[in-house]
Nucleic acid binder design. Sequence first.
DNA 1: GCCAGTCGTTCGATTTGACGAACACCCACT
DNA 2: AGTGGGTGTTCGTCAAATCGAACGACTGGC
Lengths: 185, 185
Amino acid sequence: MAENRPPFDRMAAAIRRERERAGMSLSELAKRSGLAKSTLSQLEAGTGNPSLETLWALGVTLGVPFSRLVDPPRPAVRLIRAGEGPAAHSGQANYTATLLASSPPGARRDLYRIEAQPGESRRSEPHMPGTVEHLVIGAGRALAGPVDEPVELGPGDYLAYPGDAAHVFTALDPDTSGVIVMEHV
Amino acid sequence: MAENRPPFDRMAAAIRRERERAGMSLSELAKRSGLAKSTLSQLEAGTGNPSLETLWALGVTLGVPFSRLVDPPRPAVRLIRAGEGPAAHSGQANYTATLLASSPPGARRDLYRIEAQPGESRRSEPHMPGTVEHLVIGAGRALAGPVDEPVELGPGDYLAYPGDAAHVFTALDPDTSGVIVMEHV
DNA sequence: GCCAGTCGTTCGATTTGACGAACACCCACT
DNA sequence: AGTGGGTGTTCGTCAAATCGAACGACTGGC
């Protein structure tokens, strides 16, 4: 099993960070969110087990999805040259998906580079519920989208579609490439 | 202001859905998670305001990031043809950034298509602290990254860099295009 | 029929999180 | 000095979330 205890410490740090980012004092945040100063103080001290209602109120007034208040941190400058990076050939030929930016554990946004050749099509089984895929074609042409209503795409075209339903990607031109942002909810 | 209330109903439905998806009975989930049956029953009935500890325990035993238990419904299929979409010319010539997927209110991940011509460079002032930009070149070549250490990029190259420090984007080839994922913290 | 085993719900007791007032502290202004 | 407004903290009280047990409903053996 992975993490077992709620990330109280991280949450505490996150709340303080977001509050200061918004330029609010603890008192002001209390007034705006309708919560008690004491409650916020305890939360930022790591001493506290907030209810959903409390967390939600914080997320709203801080302008952040409250999942941000409990999820992990982030990296710095990263460069992956074309052709480099962990290429997942997906078992099928003429298709290469390279993971560019993986989500931290807990997951919410994966960035992929995709390169494909015409011929076979890649059919993906549904991912986790709530997944959304964003696709941008960089070069070539492709037929992509949900299996029951795929769309023909050219360079620069953008398509978003549910990732939790079966979907396909078929290159129509040689050296078709693009970017996929796989978005977990 | 939209008085946003915690999505108790959605959470209730989500818990039940995930539980049944995992093939667990309510009693079994209670035993595994260490929570009381009664608590779970109330939560699935929409009557309840769970603490972070409770939610976390549920997420762990159900094997899902707990944000999925309260986060939003999912969008449908969206298509933006190359050239379409709200193009923000950013005041500077030979540079076009098209917003492809704006963040849902509160969320923080903007997806842009970028097209530029050589000549002038686009220099961006720092965004909000914690911002990270992900750049993928689709065609052409560009010099991009932090002002003090820009990187020359070719087709398929990927670069991530802090968006809360001054950074530049300079096209080196005509019709240089790419994708930018601007990620707010 | 009857018992043993589930299922999910309901109810009272207890733990605990949220509240609000008081607190000490710091700084700007009179 | 004094004073008013600001910061974040601590503490007693109260409402509420969690618990544990008992409940009726249902199913499968024997």
